[in-house]
């Protein structure tokens, strides 16, 4: 036990060091990178956080949500109100954004998670539309005109540290009793219950954590663009995140990261096509689904591949023929 405790301390310190290194590297990069690329870097980070949240809900726990952008908008507006209206510091704003979204995730989750499959999808879609309409008509959010005057507080190190932390947390979660219970809910609800998994509890948990991620992503987004309006968080935005998760391979964390990076940079790469950009994007989605329906990584097991590669390396060193 003592040994484990010491190990744990070493791990915690190691993790903090990794975060500090990430922050420093990002700091350095932000000095030398051209603003255009840096901007893309910002959005990659935000989208990875957003997509990881959705991956937990849709990929790991199997609950199709078409309203992820609503939670993002709740986080964005909550954090903007916190920093602009209430003059709170930015980290508090991020936290409040995350918590506000998380709270709504739980409130929405309780009644709607009884629904299954497509019905849940349409309920979350409806919820997202309602949130958008409410934000359009609220005074404090600036209504349809949008929320002006948000300070540009998001920095590259902040985004990168949060992204790395989020990836780590998601990977740890996936490999725990808690995460396995979520996977069980996705695979077979009845079988999961038969071994003692309280399916409602894990669905709510997934919604809460996923929404928290979306809220944090929204807070970072608001303080990057400095101006938000309800149309930023429409139905198509939710679909974009779903695409990121599915493109990489539903339920796979590395897949989600790759999907987010690809889909964030793809419009930039396609920029030379000007007006034809979205046309190609739509086509790519269709082609992608036809030829790689399980995502770019579809069923590719990272951990296994790495250990296999390492094992192979050892065998080669030992002089075995491959």
């Amino acid at each position: 036990m003592r040994n484990i405790k010491n190990n744990w301390l070493v791990q915690v310190i190691g993790f903090v060091l990794v975060l500090i290194m990430t922050g420093l590297t990002a700091q350095g990069l932000s000095r030398i990178m051209p603003p255009y690329y840096l901007q893309i870097g910002f959005f990659i980070g935000i989208n990875v956080i957003m997509a990881l949240g959705l991956n937990l809900i849709a990929g790991a726990t199997g609950q199709l949500s078409l309203g992820h952008s609503a939670f993002m908008s709740i986080g964005a507006y909550a954090s903007a109100i916190a920093t602009v209206t209430l003059h709170l510091p930015f980290p508090v704003g991020i936290l409040l954004g995350g918590l506000a979204a998380c709270l709504f995730g739980i409130v929405i989750g309780f009644p709607t998670l009884r629904l299954s499959g497509d019905y849940l999808a349409i309920a979350t879609l409806g919820f997202a539309e309602i949130v958008r309409v409410i934000f359009t008509n609220m005074q404090i959010t600036g209504g349809a005109i949008g929320f002006l005057g948000i300070k540009n507080l998001t920095t590259f190190p902040v985004i990168m540290i949060l992204t790395v932390a989020m990836i780590a947390v998601m990977m740890w979660l996936e490999n725990s009793r808690n995460g396995r219970a979520m996977l069980a809910v996705r695979e077979d609800e009845i079988a999961a219950e038969s071994v003692g998994v309280n399916i409602t509890w894990y669905k709510i948990q997934a919604f809460a954590i996923g929404s928290f991620c979306a809220g944090v992503g929204g807070a970072l987004f608001a303080h990057t663009t400095t101006f938000i309006q309800p149309t930023d968080f429409g139905f198509m935005k939710s679909i974009e995140f779903l695409n990121m998760v599915v493109l990489g391979g539903l339920g796979s964390i590395p897949g989600t990261i790759i999907g987010s990076v690809v889909l964030t940079t793809a419009p930039e790469f396609l920029r030379f096509m000007a007006n034809y950009r979205m046309l190609v994007y739509g086509l790519l989605l269709i082609i992608m689904m036809i030829f790689r329906p399980h995502g770019l990584l579809g069923g590719f097991n990272f951990r296994q591949a790495i250990s296999r590669a390492l094992f192979l390396g050892r065998r080669i060193r030992q002089g075995a023929k491959v």
Partner: peptide, 18 residues
């Protein structure tokens, strides 16, 4: 999977409106 088909129709939707 049904999700792939759903996303494919979303692709069509983006394509057609553009």
């Amino acid at each position: 999977s049904r999700l792939s088909a759903l996303i494919s129709t979303i692709g069509v939707s983006i394509f057609l409106s553009t």
